[in-house]
Design a protein around this nucleic acid. Sequence first.
DNA 1: ATTGTGGTTCCGATATTTGGAACTCAATTT
DNA 2: AAATTGAGTTCCAAATATCGGAACCACAAT
Lengths: 280, 280
Amino acid sequence: MSNRTENTASQQGEIEATDTGPARSRVDTGTLGKAISVLDIVASADEPMRFTDILAVSDQPRGTLHRQLSNLVEEGLLSLGRDHSYSVGIRLLKFAAKAWAGNQFRVIAEPHLRNLHDLTGETVHLGVLRGNEVIYLDKVESRQAVRMYSQIGNASPVYCTGVGKAGLSALPDAELRAVVASIKFRRFTDSTLDTPEALLREIEEIRASGNAYDREEHEPGIRCVAAPIYSADRSFVGGLSVTGPAYRISSELLESWAVLVRNTAGAIMDDMGARLGPRT
Amino acid sequence: MSNRTENTASQQGEIEATDTGPARSRVDTGTLGKAISVLDIVASADEPMRFTDILAVSDQPRGTLHRQLSNLVEEGLLSLGRDHSYSVGIRLLKFAAKAWAGNQFRVIAEPHLRNLHDLTGETVHLGVLRGNEVIYLDKVESRQAVRMYSQIGNASPVYCTGVGKAGLSALPDAELRAVVASIKFRRFTDSTLDTPEALLREIEEIRASGNAYDREEHEPGIRCVAAPIYSADRSFVGGLSVTGPAYRISSELLESWAVLVRNTAGAIMDDMGARLGPRT
DNA sequence: ATTGTGGTTCCGATATTTGGAACTCAATTT
DNA sequence: AAATTGAGTTCCAAATATCGGAACCACAAT
């Protein structure tokens, strides 16, 4: 019991760089949680990690970590290269395929995304909040040249993406504060918000206007307008956005889409309310 | 110890319908294995399952199953709808995105798949064997109309798909026998092989010729030619195929592609040998 | 009001995880 | 060639989480 608390605290309380963070208030998930935590470390890295690399960031004893990794490999959630490097296993593809195909939110939103794309001609993204990350669920874009999975499933920080900030604006204050406190800020561009204060100030504006903007805060030359999507009880929070290159999209044009994006978000929420049970 | 063995036997030994089966010889994966086993049950179902449904096929005690499900939900691997139905969680998308983007096999194979597509004009699939299922890693097709994830990540039976049978043909006899023994045959069409004997007989032919065929054995009207891809030590086994509708693809045409498919598989194996370490 | 079904919680017994330390193997240095 | 270092793997007693039967709760149907 005491050890468990210590473990959890030292592993996740201090917000490791690799820590996705919990969806909501932390609850004990026992052995499974620790194993998935290891999986997440590997999944958050840019390239395959070797045993020692993982050991360094996981603060688990060698023996323990080794068994966890072995189990993950045996289950197909990780795969172990001949050079002793761990990468994410393909069994997860099977799970993800179902997660995506069966996701009601995505299914309901899809026609609205298309519609918004037709109206603007630019790329439309749909994402959900998970801890301090936004996970992209779908995207509609003109040139299908980009390979599938290019963006879908991708996890980006909440504080420098349109969908992320829009989602934050829909959270109850207590949760918002908790999430913001868990963020490790990093400046991706000159415009990236990099303090809790700046972020919270902007959230206020978003709440007032109903729209979030990403003004080249994540990638230079990329802008977007977004709006939040949420269930009545805020147990589910996400957003959608229209994105485009700065050279083509003036600030005025971007702002002219704001109401369109808000309306689309509203339409999706209406559909969700209708199909997934009226109140709550 | 003894209990563990019993558990494993009763849960996975008798090959439940929903059981993906282990990649190789069964090794103990402890608590994690049981949890993932539950996840797999939900992921293998066609629609969200309720608690009792899962209870019926998981042969775990109520209390235990409930905790496992709660943990999976808390970790974001499952999501619990307001109607108490469990479906696969979107956190898996994040993991899968990394698994896909970082998969060396897929990266290496990609240009070859394109090339094969250009030569044949039909859809090309890439897949890997996992237990008695084949998981599709990539696909190249003319009309991009089909939505992403449409096939990627999809898990199909080994015994009625071209890629599956090709993969089987590359397995060492002992493993082949083990996998075949774990199959629960089901007739998808009139042509579906539905006995171990018939399947093993065909594997022999595939070994002799180097090509596997799916002659409308999985879906009526759909045919394909496939060839196996494997590492020297057979620790990795997959395949690729060219697929098309029967009305357009005569048996002769299909067979005329056989050598092309074999050569492509060979080229991919050469590339893998070169890039991933020469021997083994 | 009563029964039934589906889901959730409890808690002692028990099996599993834990984690420090010892060990193996390969590559590198002396 | 012997020794050293680094990386990964194995062991086992102690600590702890899981297990699972049974009681409990919520709600719908009778």
